[in-house]
Structures are given as C-alpha cells and as structure tokens.
Design a protein around this nucleic acid. Structure first.
Lengths: 228, 228
DNA sequence: CGCCTCTTTGAGCTCAATCAAGGTGTGTGG
DNA sequence: CCACACACCTTGATTGAGCTCAAAGAGGCG
C-alpha cells in the first residue's frame, strides 16, 4: 500500500472535498489505490459488477454505453474532481451502468465500495456533496435532452461551451476531443461534425490542432445557441 | 394538520418504503401535506426556489423544461411511488431544475425540505433507497441518450414498453398520454408520432382510445427495437 | 357559441445521414 | 526499414426520415 498522503492534498483541491476534514478524507480513501490509465484503457465495463467507485484525479474519462445498433454512445465526459459510479454504490448488488474509458493518460483514485457504505454514517456532508455532483450530472443530461430538437450546430455550440476550461484564461477545452467522440456524444455522424467545425475554423470562430479545441470568438459561438 | 396515518400505510405500499419502519416514516412526513392536483395543475416551476420535495401518491406528473426555442420538453413521466425533487435537497440554496405538472387528477405528498436534511442522519436505509431511485432515473435518461440515433419508431417502441403498467394483466400503459406529450418527450413532431401510431393501430399492434394506449402485439413492438 | 386542446392527413422541403473515396500520421511486426 | 493495419480527418454526391406548413374535424368548457 502506497502512502496516500499526497492524494489527500490533491483531493482537497477539488471543490467537493474542500470542506471535508483531512481525517475524514483519510477514512474515505483507506485501502484505495491510484490507477494510471493510458489512452483508451478501460476502467470498468458497463454491466460488470461494481466493486469500486472513485474520483478522477487528472486527465479525463469518457462514460459510454452501446446503442441498440451496437455503436458506442458517449453519455458523459468526466474531468478531474468528478466522482464516478457513486450513485450505484447504494444498490444491494450493483453493476456499472456505463463503461469508463481513459481519454489520454489519466489518473483515477479507485475506492472500495465498502468505504462508501461506511463513510456516510460519520460524514453526512460528504454524501451531500456527492449527491450534489450527481444532481449536477443529471441536470447536464436533462439540459441535453432539452436540446434534442435543436440543430446540430446548436448542440455542438452547447457542448463546446460546456467544456471550456474555467481555469485557463484562453478559452480552450479542458479535454482533447476527436470529431468521432463529439459525434458519439451528440448522436451525430462524424462527417456532419467535421463539416460544421471546418466551417467555424474557416470563419475564425474556433481553432483546432490535433484534438485541442480553442474558442476564438466566444460571442459567435454563443450566438449559435439561439435558434436561427 | 390532517391525520397522516392513512398516508403512512399508502407509503408502505411503495417498494422503496417497504423496509422502513412506520415510526421513521412518520418522522419523514411530519408537517407534510397531501396536494390534490387537477389535470395541468403546476406543482412547482423550473427555476423557483425548492422548499419541498415529495412523493407521487396517485395519478402522474410530467417533469418538463423549456428548450432554447421556447418549447416544452418532457424530461420524465413520474408515476406513483416516484420521489420528486429529492436530489436538489442537499444543495445549500436549491432551485427546481424542471417543472412538475399533473397529468389528470393526481395526489402528491409534499414534504418540507428540512425533513430531508434531518431524517438522513437517523435513517440511512431511506436515503439509500432514494438514491437508488435517482440512479434509476439517471439510467433511464442515459438509456434514452443511447437511443438518440435510433429511428422515431424505435424510440416510440422503447417509450411504450417502458411505460406499460406492470400491475395490470393486459398490456396497457400506466398513464394517459397525448400524442403531443409523446412528441415532447421523444423530441419529435406531433404529426410524426401520429403517423407512426395510426400505422400501428391499423396493423393491430396497438389500440388507443382517448389517451389510453394498449399493446395488442407485444412481440411486434419489441421487434421494432431492433434496427431494421 | 367561440375558444382551446387534441387529432388527423397531405404536400413539399431540408437537414443531416449514408456512401464513396482519398489523405495523414502512428504503431508494429516481419 | 518497409509494409500494413489502424485511427483519425476530409470532401463531394446522393438520399431519405422526419420536419414544417396548411387545412380541417371533433370534443369539451366557460
């Protein structure tokens, strides 16, 4: 077992753990381990028994499941500070509802399920914070559902805006995204995404190199949100 | 304040409250009241401050929010036993993320927010059950997202199948649904829904009178789920 | 009796999917 | 070191599912 001291400090940096005393955090993460993921590494597979939950420390993971036609659908992009698989922990015999796959090199703190079942007794604040996180994710899903009739350009604009890194001063996205991943998230074809994005690039609205996307004219992107 | 005794019995009938001792239930619902809703009555509006959560006792409520273009989008259909607005209760200053509107005459047990914040220290099992309910709703949303590329017929089939009343022996839906509500839930136009449903009616696959839908050939409906 | 909600059908159009073909860069095994 | 597979990106042409628009009938209700 490695020393989890530095991890505690790292956790405290995340909003939801800020108010939790170090000692409680230590209790939460006992017997936990840090998983180092490479690009495309699978953290857990949809349908398999859920023995752990955890926190994204760095990098990013995509949560996906298979559609009826066998294609991957990306349900959520998880960034550092996100808690994964927490909401199934309360089930008597839980299974992961989605698969989690690393997008580029990432780090994940893997926490045994039993810790979840124990911690709530002594630290309600923590469970509240986790519940808030889940409600946030639920809201994201609901907001996306509200966009289901919108044009592809509107959906893309909304996605890009929701993923800008609040910590950076330039408006670049916090995760590298392939066009395919964007398509799989928005329920569109790769070609359509490419057409829209290259239009926007030519107009100088966004800039991309490799999988890094940067917004150059935020007001333009926002204007796409309004129905033409 | 009315006698909440009969309500306790009613609650115990719902799966998630089965295991909770009556005494704890009484604690949960203290200072609560039963709201009687007529068709189209608003229970709470998206964006307003959330002072209560509660349980659907009978009838049904639709949860909706406005899309960017100002149309209503139905996010979820809530049937008896559903807990509404629970997941925002943990927020310091919560607001309802969606609006709740009655579909036909319905009854709702309106529980003060403070009860949620208190009960939870003494009755973990209850919070776990509520969390499970939320995770179920999250799964429904995720499953729907996985269907976003499916044809309208597939989406409609999936919706109908998810709403069949498990308690009735004939395969009729547990809630009355207008074509408009179906359209608003699936992100489609009313006309398209009507076209598909009248086709299915002509083929004897389903039967509708007023807003009551009944499945006559379940195997046919299931077969629509598979991509043609 | 006029208003509103819900349903229905037809005609035409459009957005984005599909299909097809080709280009680039990276890893890898012979 | 080369060839080959693979993942990703790009552009053009064609097509079709489902949208919009239009028009109308059938309750229900104040």
């Amino acid at each position: 077992m490695k020393d989890l001291g530095p991890i505690l400090t790292e956790l405290s940096g995340f909003e939801i753990f800020k108010k939790i005393p170090k000692q409680k955090l230590a209790e939460l993460v006992k017997n936990s381990e840090v998983v180092l993921s490479e690009h495309r590494d699978l953290l857990y597979r949809a349908g398999s028994a859920a023995s752990f939950f955890g926190v994204v420390l760095s990098g990013a993971y995509k949560l996906s499941k298979l559609s009826l036609s066998g294609e991957d659908v990306i349900v959520h992009f998880s960034t550092p500070g996100d808690v994964l698989a927490a909401f199934v922990m309360a089930h008597p015999n839980p299974h992961y509802p989605v698969s989690a796959t690393a997008m580029g090199p990432s780090r994940f703190l893997k926490i045994p399920r039993s810790n979840y079942l124990e911690i709530w007794k002594s630290e309600p604040e923590l469970i509240f914070q986790i519940q808030n996180l889940l409600s946030t994710r639920m809201n994201i899903l609901q907001d996306q559902k509200a966009l289901q009739k919108a044009s592809l350009a509107q959906k893309l604009a909304a996605l890009i805006l929701s993923l800008v890194d609040k910590k950076s001063d330039d408006l670049s996205l916090s995760i590298p995204l392939t066009r395919k991943e964007i398509a799989e998230n928005l329920g569109a074809s790769v070609e359509s995404i490419i057409r829209i994005m290259s239009d926007w690039s030519k107009l100088g609205i966004i800039q991309t190199n490799e999988q890094q996307i940067k917004i150059l004219k935020p007001e333009k992107v926002v204007s796409f949100l309004n129905p033409s």
